[in-house]
Amino acid sequence: MIPSWRPDAGQARWLKVALFLLCLAPFVRLGWLAWHHGLGANPIEHITRATGWWTLTFLMITLTVTPARKLLSQPWLLRLRRMLGLFAFFYGSLHFTTYLWLDQFFDVGAIIKDVIKRPFITLGFSAFVLLIPLAATSTNAMVRRLGARRWQWLHQAVFVIGTLGVIHFWWLVKKDITEPLIFAAILSVLLGTRVVYRLRDTRPEARNRSVVRPYPRGRGAPSRGKA
């Protein structure tokens, strides 16, 4: 087992700054390409694809935090999860805006028809709508107001969102489903580990223990060590 490392306040801050810049890189790259006419013959399609791909990727990375922190015994990883989740929301918002503005040009009639008639749009739209309350309740204050247990219950929606996102991708490709399949495989592993942890945890207090306070009073992540 890798020894559990606990970053101090200064290290944690730097870690977060570095991660923030890293998460922003795909956005900066898109901007750079757009500025230099590097988005190819169909820039709007390029932007739609890229922002959608990064939304899914950040959802997957966010869902990796819990299994990774358990498997590697690195509880501090939990402190990065909020930022990763918010970046999923950030790229999701860009994706959604691209659709509304660049793709449909705010043609409300066409959008409503699309959402109702096109199953892949319906799923993508639902996934985005479900993401909004999660982003809205991501602050420490909201966690406190909701209480850890209700907060955790609400945020389990991310499993549904991830699944909807992958099916959304699957249904929109014409024939080559390689990439959606890869996302589906990753998602299955990530959800599967959670099922395994649940099944293994047979102790009577397991149901309560499974509730980890995401951001307890004061600063920092829960110092629970191995869960």
Partner: peptide, 15 residues
């Protein structure tokens, strides 16, 4: 899976 009512002409902004 999608509408065929409009198209994006490559090089144009709106459909």
């Amino acid at each position: 899976r999608w509408s065929q009512a409009r198209e994006r002409r490559i090089g144009e902004f709106t459909k």
